[in-house]
């Protein structure tokens, strides 16, 4: 890890959140759509600095491309307007529709890419740890962390069960009805198995004093770095400048 990468990754979760919050808010404060769209490349650049450019870009495309495209199609053709840019039979693309789509999608892109950046540069473990310090119940933390561990485990079991059902002669390919019939034999052992295990897991958690009263300790700690305060002050200054500029202009 180089220095800049370390700097970003090691920031405290709430500081990282303030950064993306600033980016997202700026999209709403600044008029027009150009700046809002620019938030995406800015996030990409920050992701590049944090060493997760590829991951970020892939997810951003998956999350945003289709929805932005469909918004444009729906609004361009069906937004009520007079100024026709292009016509084909009963279909016409209107200037007003394009305008509306631009302002709507630019905001979506700005908010979504900021949030995506936040989740890319913040470990879930760090995030929940910082939230716990802010007073989040340990039960919520438990549910969240447990979920993130169970999903990959269940995905593994899915493949095991699918293979097992295939060897027992359950067809998983072919006609629609055949595939529909395969669904329940795969899903139900998975569900019943994991739900039944909760009974013993209660015994496990009770044995580990999960329901004991009083404060819990947490071995895992995220700590503020010496840069956190500087970054926060910088963000505040930028935010004030942005507001002042918006009010004056």
């Amino acid at each position: 890890m180089n220095k800049i990468q370390q700097f970003i990754v090691n920031l405290y979760p709430t500081t990282k959140f303030l950064i993306v919050l600033f980016l997202a808010l700026s999209a709403f404060i600044t008029p027009g759509y150009i700046w809002s769209y620019l938030v995406l490349p800015i996030c990409m650049f920050l992701a590049y600095l944090a060493g997760c450019f590829k991951e970020f870009s892939n997810l951003a495309i998956k999350a945003l491309l289709l929805i932005v495209l469909f918004i444009f199609l729906l609004q361009a053709f069906f937004y009520p307007g007079q100024e026709i840019l292009w016509q084909w039979g009963i279909f016409s693309v209107k200037q007003e529709g394009i305008q509306f789509a631009l302002s709507l999608t630019s905001k979506i892109v700005a908010v979504a890419s900021s949030l995506l950046l936040f989740f890319r540069i913040t470990k879930v473990k760090d995030l929940v740890s910082s939230l716990e310090k802010l007073g989040l119940s340990p039960k919520v933390t438990f549910i969240f962390l447990s979920t993130l561990q169970i999903i990959p485990e269940m995905q593994k079991s899915t493949h095991v069960i699918m293979d097992a059902q295939k060897t027992r002669g359950v067809e998983t390919e072919g006609k629609l009805m055949t595939r529909v019939k395969a669904f329940v034999p795969i899903l139900s052992p998975l569900v019943l198995g994991s739900i039944a295990s909760t009974e013993e897991r209660v015994l496990t958690l009770e044995s580990r004093a999960f329901s004991a009263k009083g404060n819990k300790t947490s071995l895992y700690q995220v700590n503020k770095t010496k840069h956190d305060l500087k970054v926060r002050i910088l963000l505040l200054i930028l935010f004030i400048l942005l507001i002042v500029w918006r009010v004056l202009s």
Binding site: K139, T147, I151, T158, M162, R179, F183, I186, S194, I195
Partner: peptide, 23 residues
């Protein structure tokens, strides 16, 4: 409480099986 993570995982894995079976 222990049911919640399992419910979430079923949401994901169920959708994934649907996807694998191309339903």
């Amino acid at each position: 409480i222990l049911l919640i993570p399992i419910g979430v995982a079923i949401n994901f894995v169920g959708a994934q099986i649907v996807n694998l079976l191309k339903l």
